[in-house]
Write a protein that binds this DNA or RNA. Structure first.
Lengths: 213, 213
DNA sequence: GGCAAATGTCAACCGCTGTTGACTGTAGAA
DNA sequence: TTCTACAGTCAACAGCGGTTGACATTTGCC
């Protein structure tokens, strides 16, 4: 978010792919921080060390750029891999503390999810991505009954937490003990990760036999 | 979202307060559905049966209008009142089925929460509202340790669900059995509503004694 | 070296949208 | 009836922001 032509771009020889990814990365930052509407094409371009016209050259339009940013940003595989028993804790910890290595970028995907939700055009794109990529992957990792539905509920839970904790930041959450947050969030997630709600009297007969992975 | 001057407004005699609330209600719908950026002043005004200039007359600016919409839309008291034992189930049911009486408006507040999160100016307003109104009310209803934090986590959980289930709507959630959704969501909420996560080995010594109601 | 495609800049355009000020018509009091 | 304050319209303004096409510069191939 330097708002001035990045030094890296200054002495970069003409290289279309490098420029493309530079724009892509700048756009990711701007979209995540400011949202689609408030991120100007000129700003993004300048941050990438290029003119705004390049956005249209490489991505057709600002909307096309946004689409590629969304497309590129979602890969939750690395988060999911690992010991399944500690999955809830790892996810919770990631949301509260952010990704260990990359300082801030670990939080970006879910913020983009939020931004995309606001943008009708991107919402469609995002739905496809979730339906055919992220949720199935997570669902497979979860296993058990109704894995797809449970995957959706988990992503929903994480998204909601990200919004309140990272964007709105009311005192009640911002000032809370972080380990306590991890514990509580993790506990909430665990219920959905480990299958529970079946043996429970429901108003409607439970035999709907929907699997929808 | 009629996009043509509402009939109600057509034969409405000159009445400033009626017009004011008409604008307010139209704006609530538009902001919730399309977001702040994509909701045009002319659209909103036409939906209210008035000219765009009226928005500036009554609310100063579009942003002022948005502020009042946010201010007005948040009153969760009625949701919270009632048997505490069934609170989780009632909340979950509300999110899945919408508010019984009003067909669609029951879902609007949380969508507005999302919209407001995207708008930096509104985010401040929203934080204040949450901090000093909604979260304390819910916290008092919850009782027990860390009530404020738990209230925040619950609102976060509900918000996330609203976004995925009402806006993104991936198959895995949209096609799921609704009673199953209620059951699972309710189960996830219940963990936070009924205090659990304290007797649990934590990496950090648990005695932080933060109450933050 | 020279030519052509690729890479990038620049300035202008244009549509959209919030806003404003002058104007019109209606309602109610004198 | 007439006058005034108020409710509302209308047209024009202004500026932001995405987009475009004409122009400059570099790169790489013959």
């Amino acid at each position: 978010m330097t708002s001035e032509r990045s030094e890296a771009a200054a002495h970069r020889r003409r290289d279309s792919t490098a420029t493309r990814t530079a724009i892509l990365e700048a756009a990711t930052r701007h979209f995540a921080c400011k949202g689609y509407g408030h991120a100007g094409a000129r700003e993004i371009a300048m941050d990438a060390g290029v003119t705004a016209a390049m956005i249209n050259r490489y991505f057709g339009s600002k909307e096309g750029l946004f689409a590629e940013v969304i497309e590129r940003a979602f890969d939750i595989r690395e988060l999911i891999d690992g010991d399944r028993a500690t999955l809830a804790d790892r996810l919770a910890r990631l949301m509260v503390y952010g990704r260990p290595g990359a300082p801030e970028s670990g939080r970006i995907p879910l913020l983009l999810l939020l931004r995309a939700a606001t943008e009708p055009a991107a919402a469609d794109l995002l739905r496809d991505r979730l339906e055919s990529e992220n949720l199935p992957v997570l669902a497979e990792r979860l296993g058990g009954p109704d894995a797809g539905t449970r995957a959706g509920l988990i992503i929903a839970h994480l998204t909601g937490f990200a919004i309140l904790y990272q964007m709105i930041r009311p005192r009640q959450l911002a000032d809370a003990d972080r380990e306590q947050l991890v514990a509580r969030l993790s506990a909430g997630l665990a219920v959905t990760i480990d299958e529970p709600p079946d043996p429970q009297p429901r108003p409607t007969p439970p035999k709907s036999s929907q699997k929808n992975l």
